[in-house]
Amino acid sequence: MNAITSKPAQALQHPITLVTGGSRGLGRNTALHLAAQGHDIILSYRSQAAESASAVAEIQALGRRAVALQLDTGHSESFADFAAAVQAALAHTWQREHFDHLVNNAGLGIHAGLMDTTEDQFDELFRVHLKGVFFLSQKLLPLMNDGGRIVNISSGLTRFALPGYGAYAAMKGAVEVLSRYMAKELGPRGIAVNVVAPGAIETDFGGGLVRDDARVNGFIASQTALGRVGLPDDIGGAIAALLSPGNRWLNAQRIEASGGMFL
């Protein structure tokens, strides 16, 4: 992956973090945790402009600056235009040329058994979770400061197997391998790359099954060392901690945030 070296971040400037899928769910929670930690935010949203505006308002209420930009991570042909929009936002809102950290969070969930998964479903998962992460990172790296950090989102499903998630977990497993290669190739720029792998979380992801189905929720809680299902704050807090100043030496690691699920 080719990368253009950029200027190091200024010590007194607030870090700017770009969170894909930052208007809702875990991405929004992550953006708010980061804002509370002193980060300014660029967030992307696919179609929910009202939700993204609400997220920006919440970040601003915390005293930080934020910009929301439209992006469909399943359409790589739009990534050059998105990078140009990021560059324009940096110049207009921050009078800066580069941002500091990237959280590749945007995703979708498809639950289907191996014999029922269609090629269209497989291709959609591939475009969003693997091709999207690869080529969006490629387009944004010239706008990142040296010494920045990337967090790619995976899943506990790469460690344990549950029926119906084979295609989804395969993409996330590939992201974990890709992250190690990114860490190796971006090391000369001082950019660390890590993976956060959430366990089952109470959100609307995948139709809200974990949140809304009491039987599923109870089963997962019974199989988790800490005795409950995860909440968005558990993941947003973990990602924010990974991007805190004290964690600069962590690199090329898969960090599972599952409360000890299926030990």
Rank of each mutant, 00 (worst) to 15 (best):
A106W: 12
G109I: 06
G132V: 10
R159C: 00
L102P: 11
Y168D: 01
V229A: 10
G27E: 04
N194G: 10
Y45L: 06
G38Q: 07
L90V: 01
A241I: 01
L136V: 06
K131N: 07
G132E: 03
Q121E: 12
D116R: 12
F79D: 02
H14I: 01
L18C: 05
L250Q: 10
A11S: 13
S179P: 10
E77Y: 13
I4A: 14
Q60T: 11
S222V: 12
Y168R: 02
V151H: 12
G237C: 03
L231S: 07
I42W: 07
L162S: 11
D81F: 09
G199N: 06
G63H: 04
F205W: 15
P8S: 13
F219D: 04
E97N: 15
G63V: 02
G164W: 14
I59K: 04
A197Y: 12
M261S: 09
N152H: 11
E256M: 11
D212V: 05
Q37H: 11
H39F: 10
A240N: 10
A88S: 15
G164E: 09
I201F: 11
H92Q: 13
S23Q: 03
A9K: 15
L102I: 01
D120M: 11
A238F: 02
G25S: 13
H33P: 01
D233L: 13
K172V: 00
L157T: 11
R211D: 00
D146L: 08
D233S: 15
D81G: 13
A112C: 06
L209F: 14
F82K: 06
V86E: 05
S179D: 04
N29F: 08
E97D: 15
Q87D: 08
W249T: 00
A49K: 14
L12I: 05
R159L: 00
K131Y: 03
G187M: 10
Q60W: 02
N194C: 11
N251W: 05
S137E: 00
P245A: 03
F122D: 10
L178S: 06
T224Q: 07
A83C: 11
R28H: 10
W249R: 09
L243F: 08
S54R: 14
G166F: 09
F135S: 01
Q48H: 15
Q60V: 04
R228V: 00
I150Y: 08
H129I: 00
A3P: 05
G164C: 06
A161S: 14
A167H: 07
H92W: 01
L18P: 03
Q70P: 14
